[in-house]
Design a protein around this nucleic acid. Structure first.
Length: 751
DNA sequence: CGTGGCATAGTTTTT
DNA sequence: CTATGCCACG
């Protein structure tokens, strides 16, 4: 039976009625889901058309799609494998008009939300100090999750002045979204539910279509998502949810752990299957994880086991400082003689990556940083996307006012305010006001400038109608003078921004290749919903750095968990919280971290750590003490501090490190002031604070060479131009024609 | 209207 | 430390 264990096999073939699969870490969950899909199609004769698989991230959806494709012969295109949000977009693109909306709505991301809230606060004359933007966004999100309208929220908060105002912000916010023909992420879910409630025929259409529904990472669903799934599954009741309550780490963003804990109450006829055999970690690692998570209350009863050998004990090292911690882990990596890609460094907060990155750069070890600042969050990218959004949906006042004076064209805040005022008074859109700018009184010099902008904008819209997205993008870059302005700046930063813009151009071209006949709206949807396009492919030969949160679902032979310190991990905020579950969530995060490791797990803490510009002196994390003593070697008890400071400094016999990296140095203080040495690595290693610029990078190919690009395939290099630290390479590709790109970004391989 | 200097705040993250 | 935002000035 295709190599599944009895439990997995049971989960594969139990297809009718509600099913809860409690899948522990490393228990072969994805395997079960994909086998299940194949089983439904090939053994049960269910048409792929009737299947729906919901995941949380696009990455997971992508992965599942690929694995299913490998298993079944045909019809995989008909299966819906999608995230909650993209599923809802697909439905609403078809039926949003039934709710009196338009089907070509724009999706507002967190940044847009922020801008809208700010406007709302201004209109309502509320102080940002008392009503912080972030707080407002999460309050609105929370209200939406509970299906509360602004009016209902106001009624609920009738006796509380402050919260009544929050409801006012919500009302104003929603009003603005409506007039911009836009939906935020929560709206995508809620409007779909609304659609189903108001139009039973539409609901039935989808119920009939999705006769078999699977939801992955069910412990991460929020209430609204729970309701949505319930509605869809109501008719056929073939609902299979997969999750692990011990890996619920997203409560802070609305995940409701009770969705999984109470599944059996919601569906009394539900079958429950526990996958408890772990195929990933050594027994020592697994038992350490079990030992830690046992300190939590209110979990589903289960205990992971493995047939694997005990393996090495876990190791905990307490370093003198965060820098020594970084240096220590680097030494371990170098002494370990494993492939760099076997290692992952996991930390609680993004800020911790910096010290480790600095060490890795100086040691010449290539690394890959997962997460961090989103590509689409960068200013220049947001500006360009702003143009595209405004062109696609001129009603989108947010995008329009973002770009109306970018680059500077003499249309200042006062002018924009007057335009908006006029638009509001005439009950027209901002866009219409721009077109009719001549009718607006009180705009002297600025009127001509607005008019010029309007004409430029019209030009873009005409280009947009041709459907050539790349041409449109290039035209915006050139005709707005955006690129020119950056080129004139001639700074390292500006060059980095140009590279990013170039990269966005590549993405757009790539998107057009992948999706034949795609519209501007399709492109924007992809940008709005697929945030992690930027994630570099897992390239061989790099250490992976990421937060514990991003590590969920992944596995590595050797894992470092750094910063095992009280108030860092568990985080201080969770300890101070009046919600007792907050610390339990941290413990689950620790459990997730430990269970990422296959063979070896190194834990560490620092006695002294730089946080917000000053040193703190933390205590060792409680989680270290929760690991059963017989499974871990701790050095913090056997050494006194003097001894430790001597042994952790650089010593002559550690020259292997220096030889390998080309670094010539002595004590740790100098280690960090030494200039970066070129390791001849073909990877560009970029520090976090300056990820926009290339590192010291020399391509190993030249004009005339044949090269391969990840997406464009093979081609011949026709031109190479050195600009700053990078090379701008022109390649004539066999299939997609000529492309210009930056060497450090394109990752061309010589053939 | 644009910009430089100062004040302020500062988990985790996806859609 | 460092990113961001606001205000005052040219």
């Amino acid at each position: 039976m295709s190599g599944l264990n009895p439990k997995q096999e049971e989960a594969r073939s139990y297809t009718e009625g509600p099913l809860l699969i409690l899948a522990g870490a490393g228990s072969g969950k994805t395997r079960v889901i994909t086998h299940r899909i194949a089983y439904l199609i090939e053994e049960k004769g269910v048409s792929p058309y009737h299947l729906l698989a919901i995941t949380f991230t696009n990455k997971a959806a992508q992965e599942m799609r690929e694995r299913v494709e490998q298993m079944i012969d045909e019809g995989q295109g008909e299966i819906w494998v999608s995230t909650f949000h993209s599923m809802c977009v697909r439905i609403l693109r078809r039926f949003h008009d039934r709710l009196g909306g338009k089907n070509n709505f724009t999706i507002y991301d967190t940044d847009d939300q922020k801008a809208v809230v700010k406007e709302a606060l201004k209109v309502l004359n509320l102080d940002e100090k008392q009503y912080p933007v972030k707080g407002m966004i999460s309050a609105i999100s929370k209200a939406k999750e509970e299906f509360l309208s602004p009016e209902e929220l106001a009624r609920k908060n009738e006796w509380n002045f402050h919260d009544r105002n929050v409801a006012e912000v919500y009302r104003e916010y929603q009003k603005r979204l409506r007039s911009s023909n836009s939906l935020d992420f929560d709206d995508l879910i809620n409007r779909t539910i609304e659609l189903f409630m108001q139009h039973p025929d539409v609901l039935e259409l989808y119920q009939e279509r999705f006769r078999y529904i699977m939801v992955d990472e069910y412990q991460d669903t929020n209430h609204a998502q729970f309701v949505l799934v319930k509605m869809l599954a109501e008719k056929y009741r073939n609902l299979c949810v997969v999750g692990d309550d011990d890996q619920s780490i997203y409560k802070f963003r609305g995940a409701n752990i009770y969705n999984i804990l109470n599944f059996e109450e919601e569906y009394p006829d539900a079958k429950v299957i526990k996958l408890e055999q772990n195929y990933r970690s050594t027994a020592n690692i697994l038992n350490a994880a079990n030992g830690v998570i046992a300190h939590n209350e209110g979990r589903k009863d289960k205990k992971l086991w493995t047939e694997r050998e005990d393996g090495e004990k876990l190791r905990f090292t307490c370093y003198e400082s965060d820098r020594e911690e970084a240096a220590g882990l680097i030494r371990t990596v170098i002494d370990g003689k494993h492939d760099y890609s076997d290692y992952a460094v996991l930390y609680r907060t993004n800020a911790q990556s910096r010290v480790i990155e600095e060490g890795l750069i100086r040691a010449g070890i290539p690394y890959q940083l997962v997460g961090g600042t989103n590509f689409y969050a960068r200013k220049e990218i947001r500006d360009m996307v702003g143009y595209l959004k405004a062109i696609n949906n001129p009603a989108d006042a947010q995008s329009l006012s973002r770009i109306i004076n970018v680059p500077r064209r003499g249309i200042g805040d006062t002018t924009i305010a007057k335009l908006r005022e006029f638009a509001d008074a005439q009950e027209m859109s901002l866009y219409d006001a721009i077109v009719d700018v001549k009718e607006i009184p009180g705009l002297s010099r600025a009127a001509a400038k607005v008019e010029a902008f309007g004409e430029l904008f019209e030009e873009f819209r005409r280009t947009a109608e041709t459907g050539d997205l790349s041409a449109l993008y290039r035209e915006i870059l050139e005709k707005t003078g955006y690129k020119l302005e950056l080129e004139r700046e001639n700074t390292e930063e500006a060059r980095g921004r140009i590279e990013n813009l170039e990269e966005l151009g590549n993405k757009i071209t790539d998107f057009e290749i992948q999706h034949d006949g795609a519209t501007l709206q399709d492109l924007l949807e992809d940008i709005a919903l697929v945030a992690d396009t930027d994630q570099e492919e897992d390239e061989a030969g790099r250490i992976t750095l990421m937060t514990l949160h991003s590590a969920k679902g992944l596995e590595f032979p050797i894992v470092f968990m750094v910063g095992m310190e009280e108030r860092l991990f568990p985080s201080g905020l969770s300890l101070d919280s009046d919600d007792p579950d907050a610390t339990e969530e941290e413990r689950r995060l620790c459990y997730v971290g430990i269970t990422r490791a296959e063979d070896r797990l190194y834990l560490s803490a620092a006695k002294q750590r730089m946080v917000n510009g000053q040193y703190i002196y933390p205590a060792v994390s409680r989680f270290i003490d929760e690991i059963p003593k017989n499974l871990i070697e701790r050095d913090d008890e056997s050494f006194d501090s003097f001894e430790r400071s001597v042994t952790s400094a650089w010593r002559p016999e550690e020259m292997s490190f220096h030889k390998k990296t080309g670094y010539i140095g002595g004590e740790s203080a100098r280690y960090f002031s030494q200039k970066k040495t070129d390791t001849g690595s073909r990877y560009s290693v970029k520090p976090a604070e300056n990820r926009t610029s290339g590192g010291g990078f020399v391509p190993d190919y030249r004009v005339g060479d044949r090269v391969r690009h990840m997406k464009f395939g093979q081609g011949t290099v026709t031109e190479m131009e050195k600009g700053g630290k990078d090379y701008e390479v022109t390649v004539l590709f066999d299939t997609v024609g000529e492309k210009r790109m930056f060497a450090s970004l394109a990752k061309l391989r010589k053939m």
